[in-house]
Amino acid sequence: MAISLSGLLLLLLLAGSAAAAFELEEATIDSIHRAFTAGELTSRGLVEIYLRRIASQDPALHAVIELDPGGALAAADRADAARVATEPGALPPLHGVPVLLKDNIAAAGALNATAGSLAMVGSRPARDAGVVERLRRAGAVVLGTASLSEWCNFRGPGIPAGWSPRGGQGKNPYMPSATPCASSSGSAIAAAANLVAVTIGTETDGSIMCPSSFNSVVGIKPTVGLTSRAGVIIISPRMDTVGPITRTVSDAVHVLEAIVGYDPRDAEATRMALKYIPEGGYNQFLNIDGLRGKRLGILRKDFFSFPSGSVQEKVFNQHFDVMR
């Protein structure tokens, strides 16, 4: 059964502390797997940590619309049992890792898929979206749904970015007065605030890239057809795509690897895009030294020009020196 954030507070009183030593802030898929392997963390423990984090932080952020703690804990228990019974290295890449789905993506079970609209409450999907099927095959644990601009920012002019009647006004965790931007706002806010390691967004025109940029996280907008739109409330079949939003490039690539591929329910688009998926996948291109020897250019005149002696110039120069 899905649950509201207020109901979650009672549930969390029962949560154990077995994973209390795990460092949640800035946790990545790789660090989570290392903690699993070392016996420092279980999938159930990780779900409980994120539920506590959401209960304490999300009332101020409005990044989450709905949670399915019962379903997530049951899936986490299955992941823990499989980990014990399976040889190291044989588990799927997202095994036991919780994920939040943008609220326009269907997940069979207790969760609604409403695009943030009250008109769709009660529309619990009978079948997973194509990307959710792939996430589950990769071992991911569906934790709940992330907020968004209602109807993916296609409701009407003048609606604030990140607002929906179901989710309220999403807040940028770094500067609450700033816009969280575009329709996949809840996914980006949740990733930035460490409410979960992995989130999924959708984009027609900027709805992954803009909130990722404004909330200082990493988003990938896949070429249309690399990921299935079956089971997703979309705006345009010619433009919409589904992609990952995470805190690191490597996490985004791990998730992209899991969700791309042909889907007969979105056959025309995914068949055409198959040829663009590299043989051997995307993970092979991850290189921790990828920027070594590279030069980064700063467009001072048009984008980073500040009044001489201003606070903005001082802060920018400090960050620029850190990057250098």
Rank of each mutant, 00 (worst) to 15 (best):
2 A>F: 12
2 A>P: 07
5 L>W: 11
6 S>C: 13
13 L>Q: 15
18 A>T: 10
23 E>A: 15
24 L>C: 01
24 L>H: 02
27 A>T: 02
30 D>R: 10
31 S>F: 10
38 A>S: 14
40 E>S: 11
43 S>Q: 09
44 R>E: 14
50 Y>N: 02
50 Y>T: 01
58 D>F: 12
58 D>A: 05
62 H>R: 11
65 I>L: 15
65 I>G: 06
67 L>T: 09
73 L>M: 14
75 A>D: 15
78 R>G: 01
80 D>Q: 10
81 A>R: 14
81 A>Q: 14
82 A>T: 10
82 A>S: 15
83 R>T: 12
84 V>M: 06
88 P>M: 02
89 G>S: 03
90 A>R: 11
98 P>I: 04
103 D>G: 00
106 A>V: 07
107 A>N: 10
108 A>M: 11
110 A>I: 08
111 L>V: 08
111 L>A: 08
113 A>Q: 13
119 A>P: 00
121 V>K: 11
126 A>S: 13
129 A>P: 13
133 E>D: 13
138 A>D: 04
143 L>V: 08
151 W>Y: 14
157 P>M: 01
168 G>D: 04
176 P>H: 04
177 S>D: 13
178 A>L: 12
181 C>F: 12
186 G>C: 10
188 A>Q: 05
189 I>S: 03
196 V>F: 05
197 A>V: 15
199 T>R: 04
204 T>K: 02
206 G>R: 02
207 S>R: 02
208 I>W: 01
213 S>L: 10
215 N>L: 06
222 P>D: 06
227 T>K: 01
230 A>F: 05
232 V>D: 11
233 I>S: 05
244 P>G: 01
245 I>A: 03
248 T>P: 07
251 D>Y: 10
251 D>T: 03
256 L>P: 10
256 L>Y: 05
258 A>Q: 01
260 V>M: 04
261 G>S: 09
265 R>D: 09
270 T>Y: 07
270 T>N: 04
278 P>I: 08
286 L>F: 07
295 R>A: 13
297 G>P: 06
298 I>T: 11
305 S>V: 00
317 N>T: 06
319 H>F: 14
319 H>Q: 07
320 F>T: 08
320 F>V: 13
323 M>D: 00
